[in-house]
Design a protein around this nucleic acid. Structure first.
Lengths: 300, 300
DNA sequence: TATAAAATAAAGCATTTGTATTTTTAATTG
DNA sequence: CAATTAAAAATACAAATGCTTTATTTTATA
């Protein structure tokens, strides 16, 4: 009787496992609701999902550092007949050549969405390729050098560009002492620039239409003879006036809004260029993260 | 002992990383310039490429309707030591989790800038390609549908992920009335969730290490029976527990920090998918921008 | 059409395979 | 702390695997 209930649960877990998402969700369930060893192996499987399709019981057990039988028990807990059964299911979720049935399901997806995605992909490729062109590349390297030798670095961006400014200054301030966090409160941009000096650098981020606050910030920096790094979509942008470095790339996308993915990449590239010349960047970040871990900011 | 030597040799003779395109080109070559049986089998392999990764010599021979030895000879003609060698190479081209870059924390220091940029470009391509894979794509579309039918949408992300949350919720709130801005002040996440109801949706963004605040927010949402959309780097993330939709992609890069560019793209894709079904999204944004222009937020 | 050469298939063999069964270890309970 | 149970590891074995060797068929050329 008890066995029957157990069996029922087993099959309930397996009900209609076809897609990768469903299968992973079932594994996730085991990670949470199972015995320690099975749970640990489930965790491994989630990050090494495709290996299940590729290896035998023992081979999988070897690379996952578990007992071979754990793999079999894991498969059965998931509701499969055995490992081979699980393996075939994983394989079918990884198959590039689809069966007639799933092809039909695919065809149901809104055609607009297919067009949309492929157009987005194309514009991502196009925009980000610009970043790797020699001229943009050297602008990025130069900007990084400029930042490195600055006394203090201020970053400004508002509205949707604030996310770019936030990312750059948040990660940057972890690793480099001279980088300060981008101001978020109203008026804080001016407060910050009021204290800025000639040896400081302003990273100004704005795209068409250009935000009045950022253009104004660049003007103030210019008046103070600070160096300005302009991250923008065109040389015709008012940010580029007297800018020390201009990182320029298109933000055009097929959607209703320009895409800022290239901008995000651009600041990541600056950060990477900065880190590549610093011996203690990763150390600083590690220290920072250890602190957060210590005080419960991250779950362990 | 002998086993170890054998294993070592196996891995030692595995030549440089093969791409799927190169391998398929080599198979294509055999299709044209080889003996009838091999050629026919090559044709089959091109349309059933992933099966090579999944099956044994005999199993593959069975489903392809050729002699088992044909499979071995085919492998050797391709320049591999045997079938097992070919199979491992095919597997590595199908692996969803790339390990090429994984742990290289300090390796960047004093690295040639050329290498750095090309490796970054490669990891961008790798990570963003994941977004366009069928499983991730459909997760994005499903998430967009979920958001569309939600009463209210809350977005949470802290530390570096806040930039992603900010972008999504800022642009999203312009176009869609049910999307609210991501909380920025300390404690605001809990304040917001306190008011949330079952018909609301939580978009939770966090990557390893997982932030305690976001994990907690997901827990609360779950307790309130809200739907959770998890944007994260692995199914093993605690955010995925009972999540309605999981958008999962790698964040590995060669630099000292993981790259969140793919995350940025992911939320842009969600926004695009949302907009593609909305007749007034671009109208809303235009109205919004006209307002800002009118009151001097943008320079003209 | 005879025959050497090439291509393919079959047979053979040591290893490895998947899973059922047994043993050991760890956790829980009275 | 002994008894009981659950979980994990070890063992066992028929079936399969990868690859080599041998046999057969096909092809090309004299």
């Amino acid at each position: 009787m008890l066995y029957f209930i157990k069996l029922e649960m087993k099959y309930a877990r397996r009900s209609g496992l076809q897609t990768q998402a469903k299968l992973k969700a079932a594994i996730k369930d085991l990670q949470v609701n199972s015995t320690p060893t099975i749970s640990e192996f489930a965790t491994w499987c989630l990050t090494n999902y495709s290996e299940i399709a590729f290896h035998s019981v023992r081979a999988l057990a070897d690379i996952a550092n578990v007992n071979a039988n754990t793999v079999v028990r894991f498969s059965k807990e998931l509701g499969f007949k055995g490992y081979e059964d699980l393996r075939q299911n994983v394989q079918s979720t990884l198959r590039t050549t689809q069966t007639a049935y799933s092809k039909r399901a695919d065809a149901l997806i809104d055609r607009d969405e297919n067009d949309l995605f492929s157009e987005l992909k194309e514009s991502y490729t196009l925009n980000s390729n610009t970043l790797f062109q020699p001229s943009t590349r050297s602008a990025i390297v130069d900007a990084a050098n400029c930042i490195r030798s600055a006394e203090k670095v201020f970053t400004v961006g508002v509205r949707s560009s604030y996310s770019i400014a936030h990312y750059f200054s948040y990660v940057g301030s972890m690793a480099f002492e001279n980088i300060t966090r981008a101001p978020a409160e109203p008026g804080a941009i001016m407060d910050q620039l009021a204290k800025a000096r000639e040896s400081d650098v302003l990273v100004a981020i704005s795209f068409s239409y250009y935000s009045a606050e950022i253009v104004r910030a660049a003007e103030i920096a210019r008046a103070k003879r600070m160096k300005v790094i302009a991250i923008t979509d065109s040389y015709s942008s008012p940010l580029t006036i007297d800018a020390a470095h201009v990182i320029e790339f298109p933000i055009e996308g097929p959607q209703y809004m320009p895409t800022l993915s290239a901008a995000f990449m651009a600041v990541e590239l600056i950060l990477a260029a900065l880190a590549s010349h610093s011996s203690n960047a990763s150390g600083n970040i590690q220290k920072f993260e250890e602190q957060i871990l210590k005080y419960g900011g991250y779950i362990s």
